[in-house]
């Protein structure tokens, strides 16, 4: 099956390369991006107090969601294009033809809603931390500590968002509603991933 992901240099459906070549190309972007997520997580106050098992579990569950937020700007809703890591732009129509389908549409929708909130860098950073600690907690050793960390970060985010634009009272709620959207995207992405085996 042809697969396209913005973290590839080029969509796999177009190049005629082997699965191994596609994987190597993807890995060149993917590995550093995941490392950046881990570094980001290490700087979230309280994250490193969690057990290593829970840190790994949270990162495994939340990395895609964090990357989706970080790379939301790759999706240009106005132009209906996606910019891949090679800086090449592909139209929505081309990408549909490469098997991105519903996931692509949902990513566009998410990016549009996030962009409409016009978050400052500080707000985006704190929101991204909330995204990570709000990831699925299946298999956690100490879910209560993660929940406590999540509550602390959400309180800080609420204070920051209200301070930035006190007149827009619904902005924080709209932002929090992005969390279930990200969970849905994560599930759609997992389904795609399961159809692409790397042996």
């Amino acid at each position: 099956l042809p697969q396209a992901c913005p973290m590839n240099s080029h969509p796999a459906g177009r190049s005629g390369r082997s699965v191994q070549e596609i994987w190597e190309d993807f890995s060149l972007s993917f590995t550093p991006a995941v490392r950046e997520v881990v570094e980001f997580a290490k700087h979230i106050p309280g994250f490193q107090a969690l057990s290593q098992h829970d840190q790994v579990t949270l990162l495994k569950a939340g990395t895609f969601e964090v990357l989706m937020v970080r790379f939301a700007s790759l999706f240009n809703v106005k132009e209906q294009t996606v910019t891949f890591m090679s800086r090449t732009k592909y139209s929505l129509e081309e990408l549909w033809g490469m098997g991105m389908g519903d996931l692509l549409s949902s990513m566009f929708e998410f990016s549009e809603k996030l962009s409409a909130l016009q978050l400052s860098d500080e707000e985006l950073g704190l929101f991204t931390a909330v995204v990570l600690v709000s990831a699925d907690r299946s298999g956690m050793e100490d879910a209560a500590s993660v929940e406590q960390l999540q509550e602390t970060l959400i309180r800080a985010l609420r204070a920051l968002v209200q301070k930035t634009r006190p007149a827009e009272s619904s902005r924080f709620t709209k932002l929090l509603l992005k969390l279930p959207d990200l969970r849905t995207l994560n599930n759609l992405h997992s389904e795609k991933l399961l159809s692409f085996r790397i042996d």
Binding site: S27, F30, T31, V34, R35, V38, E39, K42, Q52, Q55, V56, L59, K60, A61, T63, H189, S190, L193, L194, F196, R197, I198
Partner: peptide
């Protein structure tokens, strides 16, 4: 169902990054 994350070697990258092992190019 397999764990989708294991398809990407995600856990391995995360564990190495958490331990500060940024020099390993094996992925």
């Amino acid at each position: 169902f397999a764990d989708p994350a294991s398809n990407l070697g995600l856990e391995d990258i995360i564990r190495k990054a958490l331990m500060g092992n940024f020099d390993d190019k094996s992925e």
